[in-house]
Write a protein that binds this DNA or RNA. Structure first.
Lengths: 115, 115
DNA sequence: CTGTATCCTAGCTGATACTG
DNA sequence: CAGTATCAGCTAGGATACAG
């Protein structure tokens, strides 16, 4: 038996992979997440300087990550207004994916080296 | 304790993630791999038609995948010459990563739907 | 038949200046 | 300070013709 997958399952799987890729790929999303996880909540400007991301990109990334519930955005009642971003609990659910990627990436580098 | 990671570990992890991302992201690599895994070895032209990828892109993708030991390339002694591509055993090692991505992608879609 | 060369387009990314 | 507008460069991906 070569394959028992239906077209529908195939589409679902493909879609699921694309959804995940959308969240983990790209130049900045995981970097931002790592910073927020390691260093805790941070304001927009801090994050921009800390990661070296220009405001335009950072804004776009944070919006997408907020839509995907990976970061929370809190407007603080200060003057002038400041905004704090933080990694959500839900972001932890990505850990399995990221760990799998780290593990494979490390052993892969070994595997390739031996040629 | 917030973080006990060294700069070096951080770099390694980041590098490993990028290596994995390089292999699984992009529009075609996983599609090609899925086809070769499900339908077995296939010639260049077949693959091109089957997946609907133009030769230029397919060639580039296959070269990269071959460098990463994910596919094998066998020149057949036919006339005119034909070339068979197949998924390697090593490609199976990606399964954990892909499964993690499928799993997260599916549950994520549910998580987002509820908002 | 396998692959490459050429040309083209759309989208991602970045620097910078600016608005509220 | 947070975020957007504008402009510019780069890269991924694609159509097509062609070479070996």
């Amino acid at each position: 038996m070569k394959s028992n997958h239906t077209q529908k399952n195939c589409s679902n799987v493909h879609l699921a992979i694309q959804d995940t890729l959308y969240v983990v790929s790209g130049k900045w999303k995981l970097v931002i997440l790592a910073i927020l996880v390691n260093d805790g909540k941070m304001r927009f400007g801090e994050l921009s300087r800390h990661a070296g991301i220009s405001p335009r990109i950072l804004s776009k990334e944070l919006q997408e990550m907020e839509m995907n519930k990976l970061v929370s955005r809190t407007v603080m009642d200060t003057k002038p207004v400041t905004v704090e971003y933080a990694a959500t609990e839900y972001a932890d659910s990505l850990k399995e994916v990221i760990d799998a990627m780290i593990k494979w990436g490390q052993s892969h580098r070994e595997a390739i080296k031996e040629s």
